[in-house]
Nucleic acid binder design. Sequence first.
DNA 1: CGACGTCTTGACCGTTGTCAAGTCATGTGG
DNA 2: CCACATGACTTGACAACGGTCAAGACGTCG
Lengths: 234, 234
Amino acid sequence: MNTACETCPVKDSAACAVLTEEERDALAAAGRTRTLKRGEMLFAAGDENAACATLVSGALKVSAIDRDGNEQILALVHPSGFIGELFAPFAHHDVVALTESRLCTFARADINQAIDLYPSLARALLRRSQEDLLATRSLLELNATADAEARLAALIHDFAVAASHSSCHLASEFELPLTRGEIANMLGLTIETVSRKLGEIEEAGAILRKGKRGIELIDPALLQALSGRQAAQA
Amino acid sequence: MNTACETCPVKDSAACAVLTEEERDALAAAGRTRTLKRGEMLFAAGDENAACATLVSGALKVSAIDRDGNEQILALVHPSGFIGELFAPFAHHDVVALTESRLCTFARADINQAIDLYPSLARALLRRSQEDLLATRSLLELNATADAEARLAALIHDFAVAASHSSCHLASEFELPLTRGEIANMLGLTIETVSRKLGEIEEAGAILRKGKRGIELIDPALLQALSGRQAAQA
DNA sequence: CGACGTCTTGACCGTTGTCAAGTCATGTGG
DNA sequence: CCACATGACTTGACAACGGTCAAGACGTCG
C-alpha cells in the first residue's frame, strides 16, 4: 500500500482496475504520477521510448502536425483513458494536455513486462484499444460524410454527453474543452467556419453561447437532428 | 496436425504466428475456414455474436452505412489482418470482401477463451489493434487535411506499396482493388471528383491508366509529391 | 490605457458536389 | 449475329459550401 491508488478517482474504471490490489500496487510502484498544465506535452511525435500513461483527471488531445504546421486532432482522452504506443519504436503523434491533468505514467518496458505478468491487463488494454479504434472510426465517418454544421452539432452533443457524469443523459450547461481553433482542427474545418456555424446552431435554437466557451443546451433533440444522427430515444 | 495451418500462407505473419504449433492447432480446431466472393459480407453492422477472423488471402473492406445509404469505408484489411470486435455486444460496421477472399473464422467466445489461455495471443492482438488504430488515424489525418488530389495520390501510393510484395519499394504496375465508387467512399469524395483527379494525376505524368482498374506507375516521386507527403528516400 | 489573444463577421473565390449527358465494355435475348 | 440493356467510368456546366483574406469586437493582462 505504498501508493495513492486507494484514493485514485479512476481506480475502478482504468485499465488497472482489472488487477488485484497487490498487482496494482506492484505496478504502481513502477510508475509515477505527473501533472501537466494546459498546453504541456506528454510526448511528441518521433519521441523514442515515450512513456505510457493512464489519465487520472483532466483531458488530453492526440494530434498530428503535418509539415506545413497544421495540426489535426485525432482523438481526445478522458479520465481513465490509456495513452501510449506499446509496440511502435517511436511515438507517431503528439499528446498534449487540454486542461490541467493528472497522469499515472509508466516506462514502456514496465508496461510490457506487466502485460506478460498479468494477462488480465493485456485483455483490458486490448479492450481499450478497440474502443479507441471505434472512436477514431466514428470521427472518420463524421468528418467524411457530414457537412460542417452536422460535424459541429455532433461534437457539441458528444461534449454534452461527456460533461454529464450520469452517462445516459446530457449536461444542460457546460464548457467546451477546446478552443475554436482546436475544434476546427478536430473537425477538419477552419476557425471561421466553426464560429459561423456555431452562430447558426444558436440561431436555430439548439444552444445558447455563454461567453467564449460556455454552452447552454436549449433543445437537445434539435441538436441531435442537426447532427444528422438518429435520435436515441422514443 | 488436423489443420491446414501448415500450408497457410500467413502462418508466420498472422496473430496466430505467436502460438506454438500445438496451441495453434488447438485454436484452429475451434475455427473454420471460409471463402467469400467479391461483395459477400462477413458480417453486418448490428450483428450480434459476429465472428472474428484472420484474413488468409484476398482483401476486405470495413465500412459504415449512414442512414441515407451512403457508405463510408473505414479501413481495408489485407492478408494476415484480424477482424472482429471482441468486446462490443454487436458489430459496429459491415465487413465485405473486395475480392475473392479466404478467411479463418472463429466464434467470439472461442477467441475470448484463447486470449485467456494464451497470453501471447492477447499481446499479438493488442499489437494488431494498435496498428489498426494508427492506420485509421492516418486515414483520418489524410481526409481532414489534404485536398482531393493529395488524398487520391496518397491512396494510389499506398496501393503501390501494398501491391509490391517486397515491402520497401513500389509495384510499377498493379490493379486498383477498389472501384471508383469505393475510392470515393473511402476518401470522402464523389465518383466524379475521383475520376477527374485521376485524369489530372495522369496528365501530370505520375501514372498511366490501363483500362478501368489498371495503374502503371510512371513517376513515383511525383506521385509522392502530389500526395503532399515527405519523400522517404535520398 | 493599450496590447494581445480569441472570437466574430463580412466579402470574395475556389474546390468540390450536383445534375446531366455521353462513352465504353460486357452480357443478354431476339 | 446484332440490338439492346446494364454497369462502370468520363466529361461538362453550374452551384454551393467552406476556405481565404481582411477588418472589427471583446475580454484579459500588463
